[in-house]
Structures are given as structure tokens and as C-alpha cells.
Amino acid sequence: MRPNLTPDAPPPAAQEVTPEIEALVRQTIGAELRRAFLPEFAPGENLDLVVRTVRNIYIRLVERGHASDYWRSEAPPDAVPPLWATVAKSVDWLDTKNGTGDHETAMRLMKLGEEVGEVMQAYIGTQGQNPRKGITHTRADVAAELCDVILTAAVALHRFTDDPAETLDHHAERVGRRIDQIRAW
């Protein structure tokens, strides 16, 4: 059975994702995007959740066009990485709207805690832990929430260093060296 992946289609009956259905989903979206990042769908995830994810991608395609740069990363080598460009926009917007005082710093740190809570909510939703709700999220939802945590942390990092990208790179290198030392034992 081929699911209807268009945004106005009625929701399908719940069924498990088979390799054939996953291939169809990837073919349908991949044909539009040519080179697309698609989330991994775990065996056993409900098809209706997969179809919702694909519909969201389809809607973005309709809104932005199939050849949109939103889906590609072909930036020149000297361009600011998308993470830090987005973080800089967010910081500028928040600083303009909310100011830069101690209260705003506290709000950004609390926002980070809120985002972590959303990760947990999404993960619980993938497990169907709440019997009243059942399975409400996909692995892709958890991944998106984790990305929100990373972005929110990067925005908060701006409050404590003049060069957050360099600070993060330096910290990652230190952690990498520690891992190498531990593995060498």
C-alpha cells in the first residue's frame, strides 16, 4: 500500500514502517531535494508519525521551493557556518528586544533548561511512556529538540565570551585530548 504523502491527505491507519515504505518516503522527498538529509526512521515506528514528518518536509518544500538553499549547504569556504550565523541573528534580535542585563542572561539560561525538558518530552513520546497518549514523537522529533538545545546553549554562550565559536572549538579540543588520554591507558 502506497501512503499518500501530500499535505491534504487524510491520516493513514497506524502501521509499522517497513523497508519498502521507508524507501518510498525517501524516494518521494529525495526526488524533490536531490540531496536531502532525512531522519532515520526506526523499525516499528508508526507510519502516521513518519507521514507527519514527511508532510512537514513537503510543506517546507512548497513554502521555500524545491531548489531552496534551505536544504543545501553549498556555502563558500569563508562563510560563517550556519550554526553561528543563526546564533548571531538570534543574539542580535534578543539583545534588541530584551536588553543585555543580568535578568536577560538568567532568562537565556532558563530557556536552555526548558529546551532540555522538551528533549525529554519528545523522548518519552517515542517510548509511548504515557499510556493515555501512546507514541507521540519520532526519533526525528528528538533530534530536532536536541538541535534546539544546541542553538539555545550557543545563544547563552554569547553572554559569557566574546568569541563563542572559538570558545566552543577550544573546549571541544580539550575534551578530545582528555578522551585520547583516557583511551591510551
Rank of each mutant, 00 (worst) to 15 (best):
D141M: 03
G30Y: 09
M1G: 06
V50E: 00
R159N: 08
P39E: 06
T96W: 09
A9R: 07
A79I: 04
A13K: 12
L61E: 05
H171W: 08
P10M: 06
V51M: 05
L33I: 09
A156G: 08
S90C: 13
P10F: 04
T96M: 07
I150Q: 07
I21Y: 02
E63I: 09
T126L: 03
A153F: 10
N56Q: 14
Q129H: 11
D162Y: 06
V51T: 06
Q27D: 15
A36G: 15
A23G: 11
T18A: 03
D48H: 10
F160L: 12
P7N: 06
S68F: 05
T152K: 02
T126C: 10
V175I: 14
G125Q: 02
G134W: 05
R34E: 13
W71Q: 03
R35V: 10
E22W: 12
D163C: 05
A85C: 01
V155R: 08
P77D: 11
S68C: 06
A140F: 00
P43S: 03
F160V: 15
T136A: 01
V87R: 05
T28I: 09
R52S: 07
I179N: 08
V142D: 00
A88T: 14
T86L: 11
I150V: 14
A184W: 03
M110N: 11
H66K: 15
V51K: 03
A14L: 08
R159D: 15
W84R: 08
H158N: 14
A75N: 09
A23D: 13
V155G: 01
G44Y: 03
P11N: 04
Q129S: 15
T136P: 05
V51Q: 01
E32R: 15
P12H: 05
R64P: 00
L146S: 04
Y70E: 09
D69E: 13
P164R: 07
R64G: 08
S73P: 00
D162N: 13
I29W: 09
L109P: 00
I21K: 07
R2Q: 11
L47S: 01
G176N: 10
